[in-house]
């Protein structure tokens, strides 16, 4: 995943556009905020890894 910082001043991404545009016309600007939001929620959910043992990741 890219590590370019998220700019909080950008307008929110339109889900309607992502649904309507052909898949191969979607740009990184269209999809990246959605992916970041979903993956952040996923991280929040799965934050708790399988093991608590600190000497294993």
């Amino acid at each position: 995943m890219t590590t370019a910082p998220v700019r909080q001043d950008e307008p929110p991404v339109s889900l309607g556009r992502v649904r309507a545009e052909p898949l191969d016309r979607l740009s990184a600007a269209d999809i990246s905020p959605i992916v970041r939001r979903v993956m952040a929620a996923h991280l929040d959910q799965t934050r708790i890894p399988a093991a608590k043992f600190s000497s294993f990741i």
Partner: peptide, 28 residues
Amino acid sequence: RADGRPVSVRLFDSLLSTAGGGPSGTEW
């Protein structure tokens, strides 16, 4: 954080989880 949390970091995830009242998920 500025990167948009591109990967799970157990230490930070744990602190964010406990900040919201969730479990810590690590013995330390």
